[in-house]
């Protein structure tokens, strides 16, 4: 009886958060899933079990193209970000004196907190035809005519990489400082040179941090609408952009729902691929 009362009380504390999550996250998610099997008859929604929306992904070229573009951009961004962030995290962990590390790290990720709309706009400013980069390159005589940098895939990737280098530096740094210096010493005592020590000792030990950061990068990058919309121009669309197009003028919610489910599917596949090394609980 006592235990029952205690348990009921426990439920009472958990209930508000649980109900909120169920009502405003789980239920909407289920409804969205059901809607991906519905069809549009003119403007009217017909519930049912139709696979038309999923079949359209294979049949309509621009939908398939959006999935390919999204994957290309996301994979490029993830690889470039890891390659740029690793040395940075390394330098902060091993070259910067310990008492300055916290400050340097704080400074490294400060622009991370800029609103993502504002951050993308700021890159537009930097990469514009009359922008800082073009003006500087022209002033030092490297180019005669301004380059087209904004409204390209290059701009989208740059905007993403900027954001994720900061995130990855943080996760990789956290991994590097946890390593006991004894591993490096042991490897060196056994005759390994600097590269061998890195390749066979440090890299395998920091792999979980890299994979966790890379997975987060993948998830956040593939689901983002703002960066490609502001920086990428309209020459090619990513999946989130196509979803927003469906929600707008066309009001094709079933197709938008199906695309959202496909996005979730891609993320799930990425999760399964990375699961072996993921340490999400350590974040």
């Amino acid at each position: 009886m006592f235990a029952m009362g205690q348990r009921a009380k426990g439920w009472g504390f958990v209930a508000p958060a649980l109900i909120w999550t169920l009502a405003f996250f789980i239920v909407p998610f289920i409804v969205m899933g059901a809607m991906s099997f519905a069809t549009l008859d003119g403007r009217n929604l017909v519930w049912g079990l139709s696979f038309d929306n999923y079949a359209a992904l294979a049949e309509r070229r621009f939908l398939w193209r959006a999935i390919v573009v999204s994957l290309e951009i996301t994979v490029t961004v993830t690889i470039v970000s890891v390659l740029l962030a690793y040395p940075l995290a390394w330098i902060i962990a091993f070259n910067v004196p310990p008492r300055w590390q916290r400050l340097v790290l704080l400074l490294t990720i400060l622009p991370f907190w800029t609103s993502y709309v504002v951050r993308s706009y700021a890159w537009l400013l930097v990469l514009a035809r009359e922008g800082v980069v073009n003006q500087t390159l022209m002033n030092i005589g490297l180019i005669a005519e301004p380059l087209t940098l904004a409204n390209t895939r290059f701009a989208t990737v740059t905007g993403f990489v900027h954001f994720f280098v900061m995130l990855l530096t943080l996760t990789i740094y956290a991994n590097l400082v946890q390593l006991s210096p004894n591993y490096r010493r042991a490897a060196q005592d056994l005759g390994a040179n600097a590269f061998q020590t890195f390749r066979h000792v440090i890299l395998p030990l920091t792999l979980p941090g890299i994979v966790t950061g890379a997975f987060l990068t993948f998830v956040l990058c593939i689901g983002d609408y703002v960066t490609p919309q502001i920086l990428g121009g309209n020459t090619e669309l990513t999946v989130p952009q196509v979803i927003m197009v469906q929600l707008g003028r066309r009001a094709d919610f079933p197709l938008a729902a199906a695309l959202a489910i496909v996005l979730m599917g891609i993320v799930t596949l990425a999760y399964l691929a990375a699961a072996r090394w993921l340490r999400l609980d350590r974040l």
Binding site: P28, M35, D224, P240, I243, L247, A260, L263
Partner: peptide, 13 residues
């Protein structure tokens, strides 16, 4: 789950 999907689900419901 990406914010876009959270928002889309809520918008539908």
């Amino acid at each position: 789950v990406s914010y876009l999907i959270v928002g889309l689900g809520l918008l539908i419901v």
